[in-house]
């Protein structure tokens, strides 16, 4: 056994280095050995097993938190009768629409402010003042203005999305190395060509940071909006279950929220890999 110890210790060290999130120099060079990937699943599984045992023993009452097996069964039922699917689609539509509106507005304003001094003077001051406002604080006003239908939810998501995208895209445009713009002029590129080949690609890295932030805000805004009031969607599913103490349904709803968040994060990461391939 003792002969096995040193290489195993080395495997552990490698795995912690390779699994760290964010751009670390070791990420690309080192391959994670399959064994250590498995090892990382041991403790989460153990927690689930202990949870199940405690539920079986009656230590965790079902009204407070359903058991993992119960939750799995409920998830299967909700998928089978189509409830989960249809409510998820409703929530996805809200996020999609809110994100589309907020992202278009944020990027459009950033381009306006980024490309002209006049635009900056007109757009940036109100944006900088409004960005300190916690947008969830606007819910009462939105309800007064827009009622309790779809409009206030979409408005809340759009508002939350617009700011991180605006701030980052604007900063991205303004941080472009002036020397590249100068080089483009010596290559006799016209304004449109300079935009396409220098300004837009130069602003993309920072804009992608904004995209990631704004997607996080979008999901958060959806959850808050649906929790405040909803007659459909995942938030409705959860709130409805609360009234009947169906903790299994609540957990299933939460799981779907986090899966959707993970999926969008994976999409953005794939996008970043493709768009930033030029970085060493």
């Amino acid at each position: 056994m003792s002969a096995l110890a040193p290489p195993r210790a080395a495997t552990v060290r490698e795995s912690t280095g390779a699994n760290r999130t964010g751009p670390s120099p070791g990420r690309r060079r080192r391959r994670t050995p399959p064994l250590s990937w498995l090892r990382r699943w041991v403790s989460p599984l153990a927690i689930v097993v202990v949870w199940q045992l405690l539920s079986n023993a009656g230590v965790i009452p079902e009204q407070k938190l359903a058991s993992p097996l119960q939750i799995l069964a409920t998830a299967r039922d909700l998928v089978a009768d189509g409830t989960l699917g249809s409510e998820t689609v409703v929530s996805l539509q809200r996020v999609g629409l809110g994100f589309a509106i907020g992202a278009s507005a944020g990027v459009a304003l950033a381009v306006l402010a980024g490309l002209s001094r006049l635009g900056e003077d007109a757009v940036d001051p109100p944006m900088q003042m409004l960005r300190t406002l916690p947008h969830f604080g606007l819910i009462p006003l939105f309800i007064v203005w827009l009622g309790i239908g779809e409009a206030p939810k979409i408005a809340l998501i759009a508002l939350g999305v617009a700011f991180p995208l605006y701030l980052n895209t604007f900063a991205g445009i303004r941080s472009i190395d002036r020397r590249f713009l100068e080089a483009a002029r010596t290559l006799h590129l016209n304004r449109r060509q300079r935009l396409r080949h220098v300004v837009v690609p130069g602003a993309v890295p920072q804009a992608l940071v904004g995209l990631r932030q704004s997607l996080g805000v979008a999901w958060l805004s959806l959850i808050v909006a649906e929790t405040v009031s909803a007659s459909s969607g995942l938030g409705y599913l959860i709130n409805h279950a609360r009234e009947f103490l169906q903790t299994d349904v609540i957990v299933v709803g939460l799981a779907v929220y986090s899966i959707l968040g993970l999926v969008t994060d994976a999409i953005v990461r794939a996008l970043e890999r493709k768009a930033l391939a030029w970085r060493p």
Partner: peptide
Amino acid sequence: TSVSFQEPRLLPWRRVTENVGLALLS
């Protein structure tokens, strides 16, 4: 005219051939 600067000023997000081709864009 064309200019070559002290720093090469190649656009990092365009491949080498594309960088050279930029001078012929118009």
